[in-house]
């Protein structure tokens, strides 16, 4: 599998480290339901069979975090952008 890094171009997935699903966002620790929200954030996953937004770190390249949209059934990548800023999207 090759991941089209916005900065480095298409590179082998071997150059990247995988974090996983990009959907969970860190909850507010001061919220009244924080314990439940953190349980969901840390442990529960949609685990979709199909398109999924996920975070990859280009550790052997530009060392930027990427948000990659990949189909978990076929590994077809349909969108890539820098995580956080959303820049460099393609």
């Amino acid at each position: 599998m090759r991941i089209p890094c916005p900065y480095c171009g298409a590179r082998s997935s071997h150059e990247f480290a995988y974090l996983g699903d990009a959907a969970p966002t860190r909850p507010d620790p001061s919220a009244p339901d924080a314990a439940e929200a953190f349980h969901s954030y840390v442990y529960e996953r949609d685990n979709p069979a199909g398109p999924m937004d996920e975070l990859w770190y280009h550790s052997a390249g530009c060392r930027r975090w990427l948000k990659v949209t990949r189909d978990t059934r076929t590994h077809a990548i349909t969108a890539v952008a820098f995580a956080g800023t959303g820049e460099g999207g393609r």
Binding site: D21, S40, Y43, E44, R45, D46, N47, P48, A49, T72
Partner: peptide, 18 residues
């Protein structure tokens, strides 16, 4: 590995990844 495919139909999210 297909557990989430089924539990999705029940609106359950589980602590597993395939």
């Amino acid at each position: 590995g297909s557990t989430s495919r089924l539990t999705r139909l029940l609106d359950l999210r589980l602590p597993i990844e395939s």
